[in-house]
Design a protein around this nucleic acid. Structure first.
Length: 117
DNA sequence: TATTTGACCAAGA
DNA sequence: ATCTTGGCCAAAT
């Protein structure tokens, strides 16, 4: 498949249909590894001068899911947040990466939280 | 240019 | 634990 050779970072950088904000946001999100999650607010802090709601709106428009792992973006209280492809899909993807969701809460949320350095 | 909308967040009248 | 409130900020209208 032709589209698969190019690395995600490059696809993002080259896609002119994305806003500059989307490119920054998705590029950062690619640093969050499988098995980890990150909150909308933490992503916002790492992006500087932006807000959690803007991040939510932005990842909600992610055209490269799940390659750009917006399913790893969750709420700061350990709840799931949303998913454009349906919340069930988000749960499934997370579970496939070793993250369990019980009663609407991420199991072991704090330990599985990614920290930007 | 101004207003409205949301996959949010922190604090708590 | 749950709800409200004020704050937040990019996009869409």
């Amino acid at each position: 498949m032709a589209g698969q050779r190019e690395r995600p970072e490059q696809k993002i950088a080259n896609d002119r249909s994305l806003t500059a904000y989307q490119r920054r946001c998705y590029a950062l999100l690619l640093n969050v590894p499988s098995g980890k999650v990150v909150s909308y607010g933490d992503l916002a802090k790492a992006l500087k001068n932006t807000g959690a709601r803007a991040v939510g709106r932005c990842v909600g428009a992610n055209p490269y899911a799940p390659e750009v792992p917006c399913h790893r973006v969750v709420r700061s209280d350990g709840k799931l947040g949303g998913y454009s492809g349906g919340i069930n899909k988000k749960i499934k993807l997370l579970r496939s990466e070793g993250i369990e969701v019980k009663g609407g809460q991420i199991d072991g949320f704090q330990e599985k939280r990614h920290r930007f350095n």
